[in-house]
């Protein structure tokens, strides 16, 4: 099933520009609304290589609307690359990405991005509020300056992450967790229906972790889609609905109870699974048997599906379970 483009390609995010008191009203699917039966983001046959070194190899994955999805996998599995390719920051060698049915160039306007904290210079001469206001720049477009409305939206977002008292601080005075919350607030003011987060929980304090979890559940309650690279396997079942196991290839993806199994994790992490003891969910709980084949279309369309392709891990070419429906 191909998702139909829900809007004419004006590049703006779908839905009315601002949220009314009744929220985005996803129940009443008017013409302006997002088609929720198709995936929020659909990735087909995606291959990304840095200098002939494949980082992602023929990856198929569909991200459900309104779900919190974790992308997990060992170091070098291509998790950040997947996110950056969806955002158009990395050019794929092959494959197709659709964001709300649109190609990346238009679709990425519907995506708010929370990069890794370390990706920017926190010594940059600017204030917390100013960084959060940057989230509104996409709406403003070229040359238009942010005004009072943008600053108020930024203050509101800062309040949601418990950082309103820091609005006038210089960003270099923030702790790691506070930096993360500022980035989260900056994504919130983008008012996008999809959030891509690169390790939002990495090295944050307990207070920040709680704040992020709260924001995530708010976003889910609103029907927004969240996709986050995640490292702490033991919190996956608690925080997320869906999970994508990635290791250069997609190992498995789908709802956590079906996909987050010991066997899949072993395949993904090559036997050495951190925190395996903490992983709940018996294998095969209502999911197709491992190796039952993938309902995701694509293998035939790519010559490099198996055999000729170098397999990064033994058994990685098998796609055990796929719960994405």
């Amino acid at each position: 099933m191909k998702p139909e483009p829900t809007r004419e390609g004006d590049g703006r995010r779908p839905g009315p520009g601002r949220r009314g008191p009744e929220g985005r009203g996803r129940g009443d699917a008017s013409g302006e609304e997002i088609d929720r039966t198709s995936p929020a983001i659909e990735v087909n046959d995606l291959t990304v290589a840095y200098r002939e070194q494949p980082v992602l190899w023929d990856v198929d994955v569909a991200f459900r609307h309104g779900a919190l999805t974790a992308i997990v996998g060992p170091n070098g599995a291509g998790k950040t690359t997947l996110i950056q390719t969806i955002l158009g920051l990395v050019r794929p060698a092959a494959g197709r990405i659709r964001i709300l049915g649109q190609p990346v160039r238009e679709g990425r306007r519907s995506v708010a991005y929370v990069p890794q904290r370390g990706s920017v210079d926190w010594d940059f001469p600017t204030s917390v509020l100013d960084v959060v206001v940057m989230g509104t720049y996409g709406r403003l477009g070229w040359f238009r300056r942010p005004g009072r409305r943008e600053r108020e939206a930024a203050l509101e977002a800062l309040a949601k992450v418990g950082m309103e008292a820091f609005a006038e601080r210089q960003i270099r005075q923030l702790s790691g967790g506070q930096q993360q919350r500022v980035f989260l607030a900056r994504a919130l003011v983008q008012e996008a229906p999809i959030y891509l987060m690169d390790e939002p929980f990495q090295g944050v304090d307990a207070r920040t972790e709680r704040a992020i979890v709260e924001v995530l559940s708010d976003l889910r309650a609103r029907g927004d889609t969240v996709i986050a690279v995640h490292h702490a396997l033991q919190t996956v079942p608690e925080y997320f609905d869906d999970v994508v196991l990635l290791n250069v290839r997609r190992i498995a993806s789908g709802p956590v109870p079906q996909v987050f199994t010991e066997e899949n994790l072993r395949t993904c992490y090559g036997g050495r699974v951190p925190f395996l003891h903490a992983v709940a969910g018996p294998p095969g709980a209502g999911s197709p048997a491992p190796g039952a084949g993938s309902p995701v279309p694509g293998p035939g369309s790519s010559a490099s599906s198996s055999g000729a392709a170098p397999s990064p891990r033994p058994g990685a070419s098998a796609r055990p379970a796929d719960g994405s429906a």
């Binding site: 158009g88 306007r109 940059f124 600017t126």
Partner: peptide, 15 residues
Amino acid sequence: KLSTFDAGLAAALGF
């Protein structure tokens, strides 16, 4: 300012 501070976000926002 945006592209100096965070080139990734600048690109993602279309600048």
